[in-house]
Structure formats: C-alpha cells, structure tokens
C-alpha cells in the first residue's frame, strides 16, 4: 500500500492494511513510546493504536513533544 508519511510518499510492500502499533515497527519509528500519531488529520488516542488500521492512500503524521519548537 502507498501512504503519505510526514508529507512524503512511502510504500509498504505486500500489505493492504496494518494496525498502528505494527506500522510503528514496520516504519522503524524512533522512540514509539513518545510518538503521537495523526491519521488523515485526526489525532489518535494511544489506546486505539492496536484497533486502528491504515490502508492505501492514508496520510500519517508522527509528532513528538520532545523537540524544541511549538
């Protein structure tokens, strides 16, 4: 499936859908315990990571609160 990750195109081979927890592993997202995930413009609650899936065409943003800006 083809996704847009942090504004850039990303392809995940041989997968039509993935839950968010697995997606964090597949995309090797750094320090996943601190990341906030926005799916198609909507911020997800962490407790819904397992139950929420991405599919072809979805847009994902990863957000960290650890950095310097606002």
């Amino acid at each position: 499936m083809n996704l847009t990750v942090n504004g850039k195109p990303a392809t995940i081979d041989n997968q039509e859908t993935l839950d968010i927890t697995t997606l964090l592993t597949v995309l090797k997202v750094e320090t996943p315990e601190y990341v906030t995930v926005e799916l198609n413009g909507e911020i997800l609650d962490r407790e819904n990571f397992d139950a929420t899936s991405v599919k072809n065409g979805d847009s994902i943003e990863f957000l960290y609160f650890m950095g310097g800006g606002n």
């Binding site: 750094e30 320090t31 601190y34 990863f62 609160f65 650890m66 950095g67 310097g68």
Partner: peptide
C-alpha cells in the same frame, strides 16, 4: 525535529 516530526537532539 523542531516541528516534532522526528526525534532528535537540539
């Protein structure tokens, strides 16, 4: 990093 899109030291 400043926008919070990735982890990193500043």
């Amino acid at each position: 990093i400043f926008r919070g899109r990735r982890m990193g030291q500043v």
